[in-house]
Design a protein around this nucleic acid. Structure first.
Ligand code: ZN
Ligand code: ZN
Ligand code: ZN
Ligand code: ZN
Lengths: 173, 173
DNA sequence: TATCATCCGATATTTAATATCAATCACTCG
DNA sequence: CGAGTGATTGATATTAAATATCGGATGATA
């Protein structure tokens, strides 16, 4: 259901709106259409910029409101990763993500074996598990290509030990 | 290593600072001590409030900076979940989380079976996987207790269909 | 077309997080 | 122990993300 073609998803949304007596506005159509047509989990800001050409007057507040509403009625889900804004995902079924530690890109990943992960036994702690979601962290193809750029996550912290000097110590200034 | 007792972790931090010639300030000690003594993944703001009694003058900016530095040198990790601020985790080894959809609480979970999850075959897409992390979503024991409170995630959206009226339609006012 | 609840855009506000900079502080080496 | 040096700190301002408010506009239904 989260992988249906865009038109089918829009139709599903319209059905849902009629059922629940929710007005079907151009803003809602445009935002949903944009998100279901993308595969890269855009942020609210990206949605805003992308939709403006077709709907010149749309306000940022509306984009936030519409996205929130689409999440509430189950058409979208939210994904987040430390260091980047919340992203919106048109796939609502169980699937998992590759997260690039360098460019923050989020890529969908699907593998039937990942849907058979054993649930931990947490009944002792009284936690009721409804669903799960795996974040695979690493480096995407694009970032592996430009390897010479220093990786933010592996940059050494602090100054080198004495004796490892890489240049003159008494700089002018 | 992420599960050692607090004193051992502080000692490890001091060793790391000396190695890298990073000044060992009271702010850094206090922030690290607080986070490693907690198990509930506090936010930067919670760290700030908790540390202030012991270090009255500490500024919010310093707390952010120190937390960021502790992440960079590998003493802490960041965790995030849509709808709540970034949280800091004293456990840096692979482990997983129970996320309560109602109160945003994050609880550590460990199960040897979860460390043998098959990695998806993404070599075709050129993604290099370094690590992974599972979010189990659900409802925690505390929130299951007070069940009468309406769950935010299951609240119906929109008004009911005509005919399902639950009260008088023509209210005064 | 008329009615009405809902939504939209504009604006202000809250919250999280980062940038700047002078004064202070921790560390090292005499 | 005391001076020298560079990183850190606190105060402040600023950016960015997200939410709240409110009058006017709009979609749904009859
Ligand atoms: Zn990348
Ligand atoms: Zn996805
Ligand atoms: Zn809870
Ligand atoms: Zn944890």
């Amino acid at each position: 259901m989260g992988t249906d073609p865009p038109d089918s998803r829009i139709a599903c949304f319209e059905r849902l709106c009629r059922q629940r007596r929710l007005p079907l506005t151009p803003q809602r159509r445009a935002v949903l259409r944009f998100v279901v047509e993308r595969e890269d989990h855009p942020t609210a800001d990206q949605v805003c910029e992308a939709v403006r050409p077709q709907l010149p007057g749309i306000s940022r507040a509306s984009v936030y409101r519409v996205l929130d509403m689409l999440v509430r009625i189950g058409m979208l889900t939210k994904v987040c990763h430390p260091g980047s804004a919340v992203r919106f995902d048109p796939r609502v079924g169980r699937h998992h993500h590759l997260v690039c530690l360098q460019c923050e890109r989020i890529i969908d990943v699907e593998d039937p074996r990942l849907n058979r992960v054993p649930l931990p036994d947490v009944r002792g702690r009284g936690f009721q598990i409804n669903d799960y979601h795996i974040h695979f962290r690493g480096i995407c193809a694009a970032c592996l290509g430009k390897k010479n750029t220093r990786a933010r996550t592996t940059r050494p912290v602090g100054r080198p030990r004495a004796g490892h000097r890489t240049g003159p110590t008494n700089r002018s200034r």
